[in-house]
Nucleic acid binder design. Structure first.
Lengths: 182, 182
DNA sequence: GACATTGTACCGAACGGACGGTACAGTTGG
DNA sequence: CCAACTGTACCGTCCGTTCGGTACAATGTC
């Protein structure tokens, strides 16, 4: 298993066990690679593994969120596409968000800057759609924040209640809510 | 420092470092108690310490959220009181929510049931206010979920952006949003 | 073609250290 | 005196990490 093929596996472990719970022993078992082999592909150790996952998620965000929001179509339709992709990546609310996991784990300081930048670009992309649709800039920025807030909050609640339905409802309602001030 | 006086200290450490980052060494240093003393007050070890903090938060929730929501006054006013208390306990968005921390940490399975129950009672209390104000039951339940989602999401975003202002805005807007369907 | 060299992938075993937790002999205070 | 409490020293376990080394295909050299 190469460096690239490790990444989905790492993402799964991090989401399931958290940053501290995803130990090298578990990673070794899940990838089939010995610990020493993991250090061959990721000389920086565990933190480099997580950085690689963040690189992957950054690419995913660019391709599946930013590009879609920046693409053609009606604003409402583009926001619906975003929600479709989010529904996929969070598996309908069954999977937590790695960003939140890292922000609340013991290594939060290490990854904070990365997560900060990812959040900001996500918010800005939503706001850009709404601005293009005629919304005033400050209000659009707030709506962008509200979108991310709704997603993150719904994922937390879905985890807490062990029930994905709040997330699914939010995903379904979000596009219309973001457009309601237009 | 007794068992009870330890709890605010424990809460602070858990919020600052997460479940795994709040080590016994840090707890010992912060409380001024040796490990033996900690184990005298909390024979069940670290998990019992966290349980004690959850007991404390459960009492806090009852006294500051459930009781207020169930008390006298206009629905809007009661929701505003809830938001005031939340603003205090989360220190204006500077502090994360322990529930989310536990849900996304490595010991999530241990505390999941407790957090589940706390979330549900919180949601139900918001819904009860809205039902009393004339809202249809299912819709009230959804609005209750939306309230908790907004709080949790805003706390995540405030952590991620290192900026409490999204939380403060959500707190300010929440009462009106919850009442908008009345 | 035969042989040495290099680079990549991988592994078993062990490391130092920190973790949560315990045993026990004091020491304090009513 | 007795119970509550605490300091010290210690335990086993697991953590992330590193070491020395093997297998093997690719490349270079005569």
């Amino acid at each position: 298993m190469s460096r690239e093929t490790c990444i989905p596996c790492l993402l799964r472990l991090l989401r399931q066990y958290g940053y501290d719970g995803a130990t090298l022993a578990k990673i070794s078992e899940a990838t089939g690679l010995g610990k020493a082999s993991l250090y061959h592909h990721f000389p920086g150790g565990k933190d480099e593994m997580v950085e690689a996952v963040l690189d992957y998620l950054e690419r995913w965000l660019n391709q599946n969120i930013l590009q879609v929001l920046n693409g053609p179509g009606e604003p409402l339709s583009r926001l619906q596409q975003m929600c479709d992709r989010l529904n996929q990546v969070y598996e309908g609310g069954h999977q937590p968000c790695l960003f939140a996991i890292l922000l609340l784990g013991s290594a939060r300081d290490v990854f904070h800057q990365r997560v900060n930048a990812l959040f900001r670009s996500w918010i800005d992309a939503i706001a850009a759609v709404l601005i293009e649709a005629g919304l005033e800039e400050n209000l659009a920025q707030q709506q962008g924040e509200d979108g991310v807030i709704a997603i993150q909050g719904a994922l937390i609640l879905a985890q807490g209640l062990h029930d994905p339905s709040p997330f699914q409802r939010i995903i379904q309602q979000l596009p219309a809510k973001l457009c309601q001030n237009l």
